[in-house]
Amino acid sequence: MSETTTRTEPAAATAEHAPRERKGPGRRRLYQWLFVAPALVYMLAFFGYPLVRNVLMSFQEFTPRTYFTGEAPFNGLDNWRGVFDNDLFGDALWQTILFTVGSLVGQFTIGLALAVFFSRRFHLSGFVRAVLLLPWLVPMVVSAVVWRRIMDEDHGVLNSFLGTIGLSGDGVPWLSSPSVALLSAILVNIWIGIPFNMVILYGGLQEIPRELYEAASLDGAGPWRTFRSVTLPMLRPVVTVVLVLGFMSTIKILDLILALTGGGPADSTQTLGTLTYQLSFLQLDFGQGAVVGNVLILISAAFAVLYLRVNRADSPGK
């Protein structure tokens, strides 16, 4: 009798704990979702809903009257055709590409050079780095207004300096010439973005083991060979972050161009960001403004996915 009881007790215990074990993974999954739920609600409310609303608006006849009546009838692809048939859209797209590529190349190149320079410690290096952060800390509108005064054709400090050293006698029309205004906007944006690139790349350089540089030196590698074979490969993940974030922030810039040139002269500095503003808030055509906004979102998403995939394919062990 006791032997039978002894045999049945483990079976009973197993049967008693079996449902609890089956409930364990489900309960853990529930707890995981509960922890994630606040973030999901936040993302859906502040990112998902505006994105869906913007897509729907691009297929609607959305005007100021809509805010009073609530009526925004669907008009199919009329908004999209209106934007793509607009000659200004093609110019704005091309100028956005030039502005973005020029800004990224300038910011990254100078930022990397400064990061490499400051990786060699010297007296007052920390103070100089702190001073170079100032353009990044100043609001973009303030920077644009200051540079607008600096680049003034008649009374600007820049033309006065160039005239003093004999490089420009009549003064360069930095912001009043259609052929120069976009370049001026690119130069100002490069000045603003250099500190961000320098700080992130400097942090990445500090994470590279010194032993790799010592091994390269023992192998007889010069500075340029060491930079190509050691620094750049080890810095690739940081470079990815810098370029992707730089692209996302540059392609949609609005306040800098509005405060610097207002999109002029002769629409020579119109970008997709300023075109969205012009269509939505000056012409009050919110449907077409939403179309340009969706184009910006698609370009940004395509760049991020493409660049991250290429970087992952080129990384070791993938």
Rank of each mutant, 00 (worst) to 15 (best):
W80T: 12
R81C: 07
V83T: 06
D85W: 00
D85H: 03
N86L: 02
N86S: 10
L88V: 11
F89I: 03
A92I: 02
A92K: 04
L93P: 00
W94K: 12
I97N: 06
T100Q: 09
G102F: 03
L104T: 04
Q107H: 04
T109F: 12
T109I: 12
I110K: 02
G111V: 09
G111C: 08
G111E: 08
A115P: 04
F117D: 05
F118W: 06
F118M: 11
S119L: 01
S119E: 11
R120W: 01
R120T: 05
G126W: 00
F127I: 11
F127M: 13
R129N: 12
A130L: 13
L132H: 12
L133A: 08
P135V: 13
W136N: 07
L137H: 00
M140D: 09
V142W: 09
V142D: 10
V142Y: 11
V142K: 09
S143A: 14
V145M: 10
V146R: 01
R149F: 12
I150V: 14
M151L: 15
D152H: 11
D152M: 08
H155L: 14
V157M: 11
N159Q: 03
F161Q: 04
T164K: 14
G166T: 12
S168Y: 02
S168H: 02
G169P: 06
V172P: 00
V172A: 06
P173A: 13
S177W: 02
S177N: 14
P178E: 10
V180N: 10
I186S: 01
N189S: 15
I192V: 13
I192W: 07
V199T: 04
V199C: 00
L201A: 07
